[in-house]
């Protein structure tokens, strides 16, 4: 058993775990942060993606002891970080995934959103090819990826203050605003700018 001093989502925490525990196991079973998913548990799927010092890594292949003194961001940390910047609601990437229907079962979402967040932190205006490359280590078994890529583009457009391009399921006429006006959309945390 080794003492672990971890900075998780901005909080300095002290916990302990055997040397052979992964960061994913510490997050889920010591700290109760079950947002990071345990999919394949061997590096294939990306469901366990967290940010280590801002870089997406796989928590299922990261020994907890090697996260000592480093900053870990999990999906649970995005909204509080957004709030710390004085803003309301979800992180804009989370909001975009919600607005674009970029999920079905949701299992891949925490990892997918963290990979996307890291991309946008490094590059505020990525091309579609750059978005696809950044998400290429995150598998989704449900959506077919189209809405996921569109969600990231949507977040980029919102941040830039420009009109988002029509999504695959929208005809040029039936834009998101029309749907919103018809009141068919579930309200989400954040008002559109």
């Amino acid at each position: 058993m080794a003492a672990l001093n971890l900075t998780i989502n901005g909080d300095r925490l002290e916990t302990a775990a055997p040397d052979h525990w992964t960061l994913l196991e510490v997050l889920r079973y010591r700290l109760g942060l079950t947002g990071s998913k345990q999919g394949c548990d061997k590096g294939d799927c990306g469901a366990c993606t967290v940010l280590l010092d801002g870089q997406p890594v796989l928590a299922c292949l990261t020994l907890a002891g090697l996260a000592q003194g480093r900053a870990v961001t999990t999906i649970e940390g995005l909204m509080p970080a957004h709030a710390r910047e004085g803003k309301s609601g979800a992180d804009p990437v989370q909001d975009a995934f919600d607005r674009c229907g970029a999920l079905q079962c949701g299992f891949c979402q925490p990892g997918m959103i963290l990979s996307a967040r890291a991309l946008l932190n490094a590059n505020a205006h990525p091309t579609r090819a750059q978005i696809r490359a950044a998400l290429a280590g995150n598998l989704c078994r449900c959506t077919g990826y189209t809405q996921i890529v569109e969600a990231v583009e949507y977040a980029v457009a919102v941040a830039a203050g420009v009109e988002p391009a029509p999504r695959a399921w929208e005809t040029p006429r039936a834009r998101l605003t029309d749907i919103e006006e018809q009141g068919t959309r579930r309200p989400s945390g954040q008002a559109r700018p």
């Binding site: 590096g43 990306g46 993606t49 870089q55 997406p56 890594v57 796989l58 292949l61 990261t62 990979s115 490359a133 950044a134 290429a136 280590g137 995150n138």
Partner: peptide
């Protein structure tokens, strides 16, 4: 090699 996370690690 592999995917982006694995190339970082």
């Amino acid at each position: 090699v592999a995917g982006p996370q694995l190339r970082t690690m």
